[in-house]
Amino acid sequence: MLTFKKGLSRGIIYFLEIFVIVISIFPLLWVLISAFKTNGEILGNPLGLPSSISFDTFVHLFENYNFPQYFVNSLLAAGVSTAASLLFYAMGGYVLAKYKFPGRTLLFTLFTVTLLVPAHSKTQPIFTLIMQLGLFDNIWGVTLVYLSTGMAMSIFVLRAGFMAIPKSLDEAAIVDGAGFIRIFWSINLPLAKSALTTAGILMFLNNWNEYYYASLLTMSDSQRTLPIALSYFTSEFSYNYTQLFAALVIVVLPGIILYIFAQEQVQVSMASTGIKG
């Protein structure tokens, strides 16, 4: 009886593990395989394997459509905003962690409480702001909005990271005559590497994948990021299935590659999205 129970619970565990793996990978594999099939094969035999492997569709997409441009746009918007906001929030998190000054608690509370604001509820003011700045339909307008998206989480993670660095290091540096900037840049910043990676990965992934503001703030083809391009592409070319699937692969792949190379850090980052403000 006991062994039966043990076998049963083991069976349930393996079943659930397999279920998770299937639902997470199978749709992607299907997309990948379909990208190598012909239209006829996709319609006639959705479950089958492609008859031949050729990268012509991908080459075609890059040569005849603006995919290199979309890729660069995505990279610019996500990369620049992540680098800049990482620096800004590291500066903010650093002084919030290490110095006492009037208004410290108030500022920290204000910054982290922004976590409670649904990003979409501020749509109209942000739309109008970007219009007034003359950055509508411009990838830099999107980049500017992305600066703000990871604020609460980054300040929270980075402040905790700087707090973990012993104060005695700073004191020793002061005795040695180091200035404020040097103590921040050469002593604290290198030691906060893991907090910086956590916050950086999360912001980059979020901005790389962002759809809502990018779709609202851009119009013309040359300013689109990959997710936006994908949605236009599917409505314009809805009968060339091979191209649709290939475009999906191009959009999805960079995130997956980043994840493969930085698995541990991505998992830590994702878990910290649950940090309460």
């Binding site: 997470s24 990978i25 999906l248 999805v252 997956i256």
Partner: peptide, 17 residues
């Protein structure tokens, strides 16, 4: 590790899939 993958790709692409 695998369970994470749907979360690292864009929600837009996942909706499309």
């Amino acid at each position: 590790a695998v369970f994470m993958i749907p979360n690292v790709i864009s929600a837009a692409a996942w909706a499309m899939i």
